[in-house]
């Protein structure tokens, strides 16, 4: 209803895994961004789209790889926001490599109880 898990074609970016959860008045996006520090993260809301870019710090360049599975690329993902989301109220929190974005629904779509007289 509110947030499509839209993804742009990746060019040298990794697409982070996300969970998108909706409750009565919010939509939460949890994104896995291991190795991304808070200071290397940008979130932008523009023209109905939320863009997330996270730069990964790859540690020391010293030494050679014996085994390599972790991709040396940054993260990027774009989410389409429906008009049920208030674009002016976006909150984000980073913890142990998980970014949680809280999107608030507009008053218009929130359920309201009507008292019958």
């Amino acid at each position: 209803m509110t947030t499509a898990c839209a993804t742009e074609a990746p060019t040298r970016y990794l697409i982070p895994r996300v969970n998108v959860i909706e409750n009565v008045d919010q939509v939460l996006i949890e994104a896995e961004l291991p190795g991304v520090d808070k200071s290397n993260l940008t979130l932008e809301v523009k023209e109905g789209e939320l863009t997330l870019v996270g730069k990964r710090s790859n540690g020391s360049r010293e030494g050679s790889y014996v085994m390599r599975e972790r991709a040396a690329a940054d993260y990027r993902r774009v989410f389409a926001l429906s008009n049920a989301i208030d674009p002016t109220r976006v909150e984000a929190e980073m913890k142990e490599g998980i970014l949680t974005i809280t999107l608030h629904k507009t008053e218009r779509v929130k359920p309201r109880k009507i008292v019958v007289n």
């Binding site: 540690g59 050679s64 085994m67 998980i98």
Partner: peptide, 22 residues
Amino acid sequence: PAVDLKESEHEYTLVADLPGMK
């Protein structure tokens, strides 16, 4: 998890992506 193993002159470093774990 995805893991890297690096070797340098004096040590090995094992790096693992474990987002969301405590």
